[in-house]
C-alpha cells in the first residue's frame, strides 16, 4: 500500500516520542532511533518510505543517512510496501524439523504467491524469517506482534480467513506499547 496520508505523527505519538527520548542521557537522543522507526512503520502502513525515514531524522535532528543505514540493517524494517497482513514464517532448524517448509508451501498455495511476494489485492505478504525463539512450539509464524504456534494446516487456514476479513494493517506495536515515563 502506498500511503497517501501526510507523514506526521499525531499529538499522542509525538508526546510518546518525547517520552522515549527522555529515556537516554542528555545528548544521546539518537538511541531513540529504533523505537521511533517502529512507531513510524506501525503508523505509516507497515513500511518505511524515504519520506517517512526523513521525517524520523527530523524528529531526532540527525542526518537522513543515519536513519537509512540503520533501517536497512534490521530485518524487521520493511523498505518496500508489504501487504496488509505480513505473514512471517520461521523455518530455522527446530521449526524445519517440525514441518515449517510444508507450512510455507501451504500458505503459498492458499494465497497463490511465492515466498517474498504480495497478493494482487494487497492483502497478504508471505515472508520466511530466521529463528523467532519459539522452537518449543514449532512450527510457528508471526503476524504483527502476535505469535501463532504449534501450527497445523487447519490453524493456518483459519488465520488466513480471519485476516482476509480484517481492514487494519498487521503491526508490531502501537503507541500504547511503551510505558509513558
Amino acid at each position: 500500500m502506498i500511503t497517501t496520508k501526510e507523514i506526521k505523527f499525531d499529538n499522542e505519538t509525538l508526546a510518546m516520542v518525547q517520552s522515549i527520548i527522555k529515556r537516554y542521557p542528555e545528548g544521546k537522543h539518537k538511541s531513540a532511533l529504533l523505537p521511533l522507526l517502529h512507531l513510524a512503520q506501525a503508523e505509516f502502513d507497515g513500511w518505511l518510505s524515504v519520506p517517512t525515514m526523513d521525517y524520523v531524522a527530523s524528529l531526532l535532528n540527525i542526518k537522513p543517512i543515519e536513519v537509512y543505514e540503520v533501517a536497512s540493517f534490521y530485518s524487521m524494517f520493511n523498505l518496500k510496501p508489504v501487504g496488509k497482513c505480513l505473514i512471517e514464517v520461521c523455518r530455522t532448524s527446530s521449526c524445519w524439523l517440525r514441518g515449517a517448509n510444508e507450512i510455507v508451501e501451504h500458505i503459498g498455495n492458499r494465497l497463490g504467491i511465492k515466498n517474498g511476494e504480495t497478493t494482487a489485492d494487497g492483502k497478504f505478504t508471505l515472508k520466511t524469517v530466521e529463528c523467532l525463539g519459539s522452537c518449543g512450539t514449532a512450527p510457528m509464524l508471526q503476524i504483527g506482534e502476535q505469535y501463532y504456534e504449534d501450527l497445523t494446516f487447519d490453524k493456518v487456514d483459519a488465520l488466513i480467513n480471519e485476516w482476509n476479513n480484517k481492514t487494519e494493517h498487521s503491526k508490531y506495536l502501537d503507541v500504547n506499547t511503551f510505558r509513558k515515563n
Binding site: H38, G133, Q142, T177, R179
Partner: peptide, 17 residues
C-alpha cells in the same frame, strides 16, 4: 529485548510501571 518479542515488551513495560 529482541524486536520480535513485542508482546513481551508490553509485559515488561507493565511490570516496570
Amino acid at each position: 529485548v529482541r524486536g520480535e518479542y513485542f508482546y513481551i515488551i508490553k509485559i515488561l513495560e507493565k511490570a516496570i510501571d
